[in-house]
Computed example of a mutant assay.
Amino acid sequence: MAEWVCRALRDGALEGEHAPALTIKDSIPTPLGFDAFCHVLSQLSTNISAKKSQSRALVLVAFSRSPSYYVDLLKRRGLDISSSQQWIRILDCYTDPLGWRERLMECGSAKNLSHEASNIASTCRNVKDVDKLFSSVISLGEGLVGQGKVRFSVAIDSVNEMLRHASLSSVAGLLSNLRCCDQISSIFWFLHADLCEEKVTAVIEYMSSMVASIEPLIPFANRHRGNSENLSLVERNFTKGKFHVRCKRRNGRVRVMFEEIHIGQSGIDFTSPSSEDGLVNQVNQGLLPKVQFNLQLSEKERNDRAKVVLPFEHQGNGKPVEIYDGRKSLMDSKNEAAPVSTGNSKINDDSSKGEIIYFRDSDDEMPDSDEDPDDDLDI
């Protein structure tokens, strides 16, 4: 499912449609959302650098990490940083979000960024001004692809940090304006749901076309975390979870998918849900509803059902099976052989066989040819 999400961001938007937007969110029990964000960022960067994506550039708005962190991340993923100036720009909202660092640099008590990071980073010193932030993102993207039909992608590493400095309406307006921009191919961001109110999370999810939530693979049996069993589950949920994706289709329907996410020494892995996990099976069995009736017929019930003679079939008299179509008259039916019988004229009470005799309603009374069927009508 993670590959499907990355392909959706890679393919971008159709002509006349808004850019696809992805919300990646997690919670305290399973804090793996930023790892998933870095994975999507690396996959999209690889496609952009190889020119396999609709977008030809990427603008990363960094709130929670420094530009040097993302430069090292792209290096570890095997991307050529020397050519990164042609397809990526980082809007640095982490180093000096309120303009205080600039004053410290004048005093000589602040450190500068690395040479590689400074080549692709641009510092934003007033993150409270959302309009200026939007203009900075657009100008950085246009500086890479120019003004025209060529598109670029946008990534925001922390919506929570944006909400610390701006109101919800301002942040929602920024995300909406970015989606509506004709030059933006796709956009995705990370949100830690436990640091926001439910209405804030609902608004951010409403602004997106895809929502990828990291959920605990095994929920807690109770709220007492001092339990030794729950402590092992806490430790396990910090490295393994469920990657749950909800996608809004163009026809209005919602597609739901999920797979397992695992963080190991080699990196992040996405696998299909495993049924071999005993704890998962135990939880799933507890969630199954307990019904008080059988969902399948027994052998005796199947045999009894096979012995029932349906009213529209005349069979068992040695002649080919004839389907009663309801159009034969009562006089014709008298010439037919008798229905299924056991060879005796008397009904055997001990026999398990039965019959259903069916007569069409129109055969009960033959209409009088001299009688006008419309005599009772008062015209």
Rank of each mutant, 00 (worst) to 15 (best):
M1C: 04
C6A: 15
R7H: 02
L9M: 07
E15W: 05
A21H: 05
A21S: 12
P29T: 02
G33Y: 03
C38N: 13
I48K: 01
K51Y: 05
K52S: 08
S53E: 07
S55K: 00
R56W: 00
V59R: 01
L60T: 03
S66L: 08
Y69L: 01
L74P: 00
R77P: 01
Q86P: 02
D92N: 03
G99C: 09
R101I: 13
E106K: 11
G108N: 08
N112I: 01
N112V: 05
S114N: 06
I120C: 03
T123F: 04
C124T: 06
L133D: 10
L140N: 02
E142N: 14
V145H: 05
F152V: 03
V154Y: 04
A155N: 02
I156F: 01
I156S: 03
V159A: 15
R164E: 11
S169D: 14
S169P: 01
V171N: 07
A172F: 08
L174D: 07
R179S: 03
D182F: 02
Q183N: 15
Q183H: 06
E197F: 12
M210I: 15
L217F: 04
G226P: 00
E229F: 08
L231P: 00
S232Q: 14
E235C: 06
N237I: 03
T239E: 06
R253M: 14
R253A: 14
R255N: 09
V256D: 06
F258V: 00
I261F: 03
I263S: 10
G278M: 05
N281V: 04
L288Y: 09
Q292D: 15
Q292N: 15
N294Y: 06
L295N: 07
S298T: 15
E299P: 06
E301C: 10
E301P: 04
N303V: 10
K307S: 12
V309R: 15
L310T: 11
L310K: 10
H314M: 13
N317E: 13
G318R: 04
G318M: 06
P320R: 04
P320D: 05
V321N: 02
E322M: 11
Y324H: 09
G326D: 08
R327C: 13
M331A: 13
E336A: 14
E336W: 12
A337Q: 11
S341H: 15
T342M: 09
N344W: 04
S345G: 11
N348Q: 12
I356T: 15
F359E: 11
F359G: 04
D361Y: 11
M366F: 14
D370I: 07
E371I: 09
D374H: 07
D375Q: 13
D376F: 13
L377P: 02
D378A: 07
